[in-house]
Amino acid sequence: MDTKKYEELQEIARQSRAWIIRALAEANSGHPGGSLSATDILTYLYFQAMNINPDNPSDPKRDRFVLCKGHGAPALYTSLALRGYFPKDELLTLRKLGSRLQGHPDTRKLPGIDASTGSLGQGLSIANGMALAGKLDDQSYTVYALLGDGETQEGQVWEALMTASHYQLNNVIAFLDYNHLQIDGRIEEVKSGGNFASRFRSFGWHVLEVNGHDFYAIDEAVIAAKQEKYAPSMIIAHTIKGKGVPFMEGKAKWHGKAPNKEEALEALKLLGASWEEI
């Protein structure tokens, strides 16, 4: 990845974050912390890595993405809108009655959503199913997935980790959004995930660790993951919850609380954006 691309992705991520803040403020509910920690990964996937076409969102050959941590939906919606899947203004209908932008992603409502998620722990299994179908059909697509760190407390995640390595699903590339925070506090206090890297490795995964806000590092990891011949890859992305909005960064209270108008204006200012501009 060259500097130009890096800067382009940075600018898209900035805009994405601004839209996330504005949409959450309009919705008056939702999850800013985990949307902002995942924004750079999603920006990278939708503007660099994935073979997708917004004009043909159900192309069988396309790469897939499963947002296992479905509450990060605002980050997915802004990525899709900025990528051209639907008009940006629709982002302001987030969580409102009749909106295609449900509180958690709904594949039947919105083009570009590859799987309905929201109940934690189920997404990686869904991604595996897509990857199995890809192998059966001799398709070369990649299935990307993004898990929350707290989400790994769900036992099904470990069932799915076993399935992916058992079936040698090297077409699965998962990210762990390792921001260390969940609703009730630090993951280490709520229920420690221990050494994630060694746990994933012992489940037969190819494990990489990156700074989840560094596009160069994410890019290198994905390129390495794609060269893996047998094992599925887990990219542990070290992230900051609330990234990009300093007063939200590293604070569990911003997991599931939307900013009010005043807080949103302040956040937008910090992101170099304004309410009217977006």
Binding site: P60, V66, T107, D114, A115, G121, Q122, G123, S125, I126, A127, N128, G129, M130, A131, L132, A133, G134, L136, D137, G155, Q156, E159, A160, M162, T163, H166, Y167
Partner: peptide, 23 residues
């Protein structure tokens, strides 16, 4: 045929992924 082992929750959600790819 996919043998999913003793993991019913994983099995059902894996089937969902396959069905999303027209199986």
């Amino acid at each position: 045929f996919f043998q999913m082992g003793i993991a019913e929750q994983d099995m059902l959600a894996t089937a969902a992924g396959l069905a999303l790819c027209d199986k």
